[in-house]
Simulated scan of single mutants.
Amino acid sequence: MFAGFDIPQWFSSLPIGMSKESAYAFAAENVRAYSDGNIERERALLNEIRGCSLALEQVGVIYAGAVLGI
């Protein structure tokens, strides 16, 4: 089986099972660029991404990605 897709400009791999520390590191590289300096928006995005990461870990996902900034 072969699957292919075009990767959008804002695509980023999403680490599975992020700790709080790794979530903040991820935010430093990705989320802050999309929050436009709004701390509440940054915090909401960070919490959402970390929650998704932990949920993916619980169901056994091996790899995930997300399109941020649209």
Rank of each mutant, 00 (worst) to 15 (best):
E48H: 15
R32M: 06
S53W: 00
I7D: 02
S22K: 12
I49L: 05
A66F: 05
R32Y: 12
V31P: 02
F5S: 10
N38T: 07
G60F: 04
P15N: 03
I39G: 01
F2D: 12
S19V: 07
G17R: 04
G65H: 11
L45N: 05
R43G: 00
M1N: 09
P8E: 07
K20S: 01
E57C: 11
A25N: 06
G60I: 13
V67S: 12
A66H: 08
A28Q: 08
I62L: 10
E48R: 14
A55M: 10
R50F: 00
G37C: 08
Q58L: 11
D36A: 06
E29K: 12
E48I: 08
S13L: 12
L45M: 14
A25R: 10
L56K: 09
I7E: 08
G65K: 10
K20Y: 03
V67C: 07
E42S: 04
D36V: 06
E29V: 03
G37F: 01
R32Q: 10
A23H: 03
G65F: 06
S19F: 04
E42I: 12
A44H: 07
W10G: 14
S13G: 14
F5K: 05
Q58I: 02
D36Y: 13
A44Y: 07
E40W: 00
G69Q: 13
K20H: 13
I49S: 01
N38G: 07
Y63M: 12
Q9C: 03
I7N: 11
E57F: 08
R50H: 11
G69F: 01
K20T: 14
Y24T: 04
G65T: 06
R41Q: 07
C52H: 10
C52W: 09
I49E: 04
S13Q: 12
L45Q: 14
A66G: 04
G4V: 15
E42P: 00
G37T: 05
L45T: 09
S12E: 14
I7K: 13
M1P: 04
S12R: 11
I16V: 14
I39S: 09
F5A: 06
F26K: 01
V59D: 03
P15Y: 01
A25M: 09
S22M: 09
N30K: 13
D36H: 14
I70C: 08
S19N: 10
A27Q: 02
F5N: 08
Y63I: 14
Y63W: 07
S19G: 02
E29L: 08
Q9E: 15
S12V: 15
E57G: 03
S35P: 03
S53C: 02
G4H: 05
A64H: 12
A33W: 11
F11Q: 05
C52P: 00
G69P: 08
N30H: 13
F26W: 09
G37M: 09
R41C: 03
A23R: 00
A33R: 14
Q9H: 11
I7R: 11
G65D: 15
L54V: 15
Q9G: 02
E48C: 09
